[in-house]
Design a protein around this nucleic acid. Structure first.
Lengths: 215, 215
DNA sequence: CGTGTATTTGACCAAATGGTCAAGATATTT
DNA sequence: AAATATCTTGACCATTTGGTCAAATACACG
């Protein structure tokens, strides 16, 4: 049985690259693109600044890499739907997967927020292209559902933003949430409760009837 | 009738201070505390850097001043309620005034977002003090409404966060909203539609019966 | 007008910025 | 072991950073 031999150098490279990406995501999320310094990222990664630049080329490239990684995670979440699907199931899955993205990648979520806050200079094309198309497609399905009486005739785009904002909040405003609820962290059960709350209120709010039977 | 004579110098001072605050709010909102440079603020205000520092003392002081101004606006919005009030009216007014804050002060809203994104180092005491108390008080009223059957028994804190997040979104993620909806700006009617949408969905979503009659 | 106060601004400072480079260390391959 | 490729890192660079200061200017007021 042959084990794949990973040379020391390759393992080290992977370890360093990962440390850098993690550190950079943290620093960029906290201070934004301009506010982040390569020095700070290097310190967070436990490497000399020159070494960080050796790996990533430049601050700009590092930032772009991180944004691309995050958009990859978004896309992995954005599965397709059709008019024949059950609105309740789809909307609930939508809320849950978006919340899961927030929970599992809070730094990435904040990075995204910081990028959009500054006017999304690096993400314009993605937002005006892929993401807009995705929203439009889904909006059409929502409208058809409304026509068929499966949900209230609400503006589907505002509904999508409602889901995005209410889940995103728990990453971007984590500091506020923790301060006000007197917590140190948001636990697993906290996230479950919040997600259940959002599913309940939003689904009921747009008149989606929950299918009461299965299969 | 005596008109109050404002000396040229006073008028100039006011004008400059206002220009600086406006410029600074814009730059801090866009780039965060660390990412904002006094030079950039000065240019946006049309003044030399030294002059800006003459007026505001330091970058830190300027930032604190802006945060305080924004918290003042928040507080002006946070009126008191009692169990005897009508849940529908109160919740709707809550959503509308929060949305109005977003609409009338998008830069300030983004400044607040950037501050919380970096962990709210300057706002900790406000969040853990005044604001937490305000939330707790309101939460108790919501719970009493639920007990009286005036609304569903949802967690009142998550409900408040739902309102904050879904309205705040249109300031912080304006770039995304504009890209996806293919707009240049959000117009007055847009804001009205979004606000109506949010009122409808959220009130219905937590089972608040809208009083159908007046007086 | 003249005196004192408020404002304006360029010159300047030490520190931090993103980035380069060359020299040395370490691994990999032959 | 020799040769080669990869990695590491301190020294260094031009530019920008927040902030100071003093000299000049504008203004208010007796």
């Amino acid at each position: 049985m042959t084990t794949i031999l990973t040379p020391d150098t390759t393992r080290a490279r992977l370890r360093n690259e990962q440390a850098i990406l993690e550190a950079a995501e943290q620093v960029f999320a906290c201070h934004g693109y301009r506010g982040a310094s390569v020095q700070a990222i290097a310190e967070a990664a436990g490497l000399p600044k020159s070494n960080v630049l050796y790996y990533v080329g430049s601050k700009r490239q590092l930032y772009v890499t991180l944004l691309e990684r995050m958009m990859g995670r978004w896309n992995a979440m954005l599965d397709d739907i059709s008019v024949d699907d059950d609105p309740a199931e789809v909307l609930e899955a939508f809320i849950r997967s978006k919340m899961e993205l927030t929970r599992s990648h809070p730094q990435g979520s904040r990075l995204f927020a910081a990028e959009v806050l500054q006017g999304a200079p690096f993400l314009q094309t993605y937002l005006r292209g892929e993401l807009r198309d995705w929203v439009d497609a889904r909006a059409r399905v929502f409208e058809q559902w409304a026509e068929k009486g499966l949900m209230d005739p609400v503006d589907p785009v505002w509904l999508i933003f409602l889901i995005w904002s209410s889940t995103q909040h728990y990453a971007d405003f984590e500091a506020q949430v923790l301060s006000i609820t007197d917590r140190d962290v948001l636990s697993e059960p906290d996230y479950r409760n919040i997600t259940d709350f959002l599913c309940r209120v939003i689904l009921k709010g747009c008149g989606v009837r929950r299918a009461s039977s299965e299969t």
